[in-house]
Simulated assay, not measured.
Amino acid sequence: MFTGIVELIGTVSDYQEYDATHSGGGGVSVTVTNASEILGDCHIGDSIAVNGICLTVTEYSDDSFKVGISPETIRRTNVSSWETGTKVNLERAVGQDVRFGGHYVQGHIDGVARITSRVPEANSIVFGFKLREKEFEKYIVEKGFICIDGTSLTITKIDDDGVFYIAMIKHTQEKVVLPSKAIGDEVNIEVDLTGKVIEKQVVLQLQDQIENEQSPLTKLVEKLVDQKLQKLIGK
């Protein structure tokens, strides 16, 4: 679990692709350097969010760590655009002594979005984004949370065509990679888990009500149908 509060910007120093015959199974191996500030308490098997992707540490030194990335993760994220020198946001999994400054972030990327605009507003930058995976637009809520490249942000506006916006203050601009990106670049998106949980519970409850002939919902539907039929018969 993560909070979406980026601790450090690291640098991709090695990006190695594996073919399907390798033990990596068609995935990639990535080494991130300039990470000494978050490796003092590191262990093999620890989780670190790299641009919002929860990844497992397989090797580490004083200044770098290595992770393996599966084909499924590559398909869902912007990992394929990484190369030597790419800057990435880093956050360790939360511990008991961590203040919850952002929002509940799993590190499980839903998909990517393309930057459609970036407009200065006083000392802030207003970014616009368009999701590649349209099915996740229903979880984008004005004033709701969203995680962009591992950064917890608040949605300020949504257009009718699904483009949504965030406003990034100067302090955050200095701590994350987004300000270095251009219009057209892709970012990793994790929508707020709360919306997905609520939707699932509603769907399950509705299914249960529909399948039960004695449920309040079934009885209400039957009553409404009877009333409609009576009106039609009366005509």
Rank of each mutant, 00 (worst) to 15 (best):
Q16L: 13
E17K: 07
E17H: 05
T21S: 11
G24W: 00
G26V: 05
V28F: 04
S29M: 13
T33M: 12
N34P: 01
A35S: 08
S36I: 09
S36V: 09
S36M: 06
E37R: 13
D41M: 11
D41Y: 03
C42Y: 06
H43N: 15
H43C: 13
I44V: 12
I44S: 09
S47G: 04
S47I: 10
S47E: 03
A49M: 07
V50T: 14
I53R: 00
I53C: 14
C54T: 01
L55Q: 12
T56Q: 08
V57W: 04
S61M: 06
S61H: 11
D62G: 10
K66H: 14
V67H: 09
G68T: 14
I69V: 15
S70P: 14
E72H: 14
T73K: 00
I74E: 05
I74S: 09
R76V: 03
W82P: 01
E83C: 15
G85T: 06
N89R: 04
L90R: 06
E91Y: 07
R92A: 05
R99Y: 01
F100R: 12
G101N: 09
G101C: 10
G102L: 06
H103D: 04
Y104L: 15
Y104E: 07
V105F: 08
V105K: 08
Q106N: 12
Q106F: 00
G107S: 04
H108S: 08
I109R: 03
I109T: 01
D110P: 02
V112R: 08
R114Y: 03
T116Y: 03
T116W: 01
R118G: 10
V119S: 00
P120Y: 00
A122D: 15
F127G: 03
G128P: 08
G128I: 09
